[in-house]
Simulated assay, not measured.
Amino acid sequence: MDIEILGALAVQENGVSITPTAPKPRQVLALLALHADRVVSASALIEELWGTTPPRSARTTLQTYVLQLRELIAAALDKDEPQSGAHPGTPRTAKDVLVTMPSGYLLASGGAESDVAAFERLSGMGYRAMDAGDFPGAARQLREALALWTGNAFADVQCGEQLEMEIKRLEENRLCALDQRIEADLRLGRHRELLAELTVLVNRYRTHESLHGQFMLALYRSGRRGEALEVYQRLRATLVRDLGLEPSAGLQRMQRSILTAGPETVAAPPAAAKDRLVPTS
């Protein structure tokens, strides 16, 4: 099974799409695909579909959506040679792929790695390389991880509370990987190469202090001291206006360093400066 979540939802079995076009069955598949090989409770699926006020027929309707998904899976399985299911020698069925469990349902991936799992594996390797001081390796692994994103997670899915919460988690993980990849590139002296990318990022994430600190550092080490200080002043104005906060102590130290020190002595702000995150719409 192929599962792609980091962009438009795409789930295939035997190379055939099993992604429904109807919004609510699509929501069901999205939540099952995100948690592939793990049980998703019926109550979580019902909350995703109808929030805190489900209709009396919610469980029956959910079962109908599951049957619709199994019809798509069965059609995909018919395209291939019979495979072993729960018992050796028996054809694999739709119920072997979308399994009914006592408390809910499980989508069996067949051991395939989803793009989310691949992202988590590669980014984890990147973080470990950063910790070991292997900045070329970290930049490479994190770049591979980020390349798996083709858009916003579940970009074409009508999302309820469960998926909205998961989207926020995935986006935060994406930003953490991006922050560390940029940090690795800065450690490798790629200051000028980062300027265009950071220009876009600080305009999208207007209160993300780590990205602004990295932009200040890249500008300053590219010989653009005045622009680096302007970035700080714009960030400060936004933080005060939108959040009633001053920049973090680490970022304030960085600004003072830019005012008084040579480029080689200016350090990036500490990780704590990453905490304030408000993307623009």
Rank of each mutant, 00 (worst) to 15 (best):
Q83A: 09
A267F: 03
Y232R: 12
A268H: 07
L245G: 03
E227V: 03
Y220F: 14
V28Y: 03
Y105D: 05
L245C: 00
Q63T: 15
E71F: 12
K274M: 10
E4W: 10
R38V: 00
D37I: 12
F119W: 03
F154G: 01
A129P: 08
P263R: 14
G15K: 08
I5K: 01
R143H: 01
L186E: 05
D179H: 02
R128M: 11
Q255E: 11
L9N: 08
S103R: 10
P136V: 12
L277I: 14
G262N: 15
T90V: 07
E193Y: 11
E246M: 15
D156Y: 01
Q180W: 03
R140D: 15
L194Q: 05
N173K: 14
V97Q: 07
H35W: 00
H191W: 08
E171H: 09
A8V: 12
S210K: 12
L34E: 04
P247H: 08
S281Q: 09
P20S: 04
V266Q: 05
Y220A: 13
A267M: 08
A267V: 09
D78M: 09
A30N: 01
L67F: 13
L259D: 11
D242F: 00
A44Q: 10
A273W: 03
T53Y: 07
A117R: 13
K79Y: 04
T53R: 14
A58D: 10
R169M: 05
R224K: 15
L34Q: 06
L67Y: 13
G133W: 01
G110V: 08
A177Y: 00
A138E: 05
R181S: 07
E71A: 14
T64C: 06
A237S: 04
P55E: 06
D275P: 00
R140V: 13
T100D: 08
R225T: 14
V231R: 12
R224C: 13
S248I: 06
T100R: 11
S123F: 02
L148H: 01
E171T: 09
L67V: 15
T238L: 02
L243V: 08
L251I: 10
R204H: 14
E264N: 14
R56D: 11
Q180D: 04
S210T: 11
E164V: 03
M165S: 14
P270W: 01
A36C: 09
M130S: 05
R221T: 09
V266H: 05
R121P: 08
E47N: 15
L146P: 01
P25C: 03
S123I: 02
T280V: 15
L34W: 06
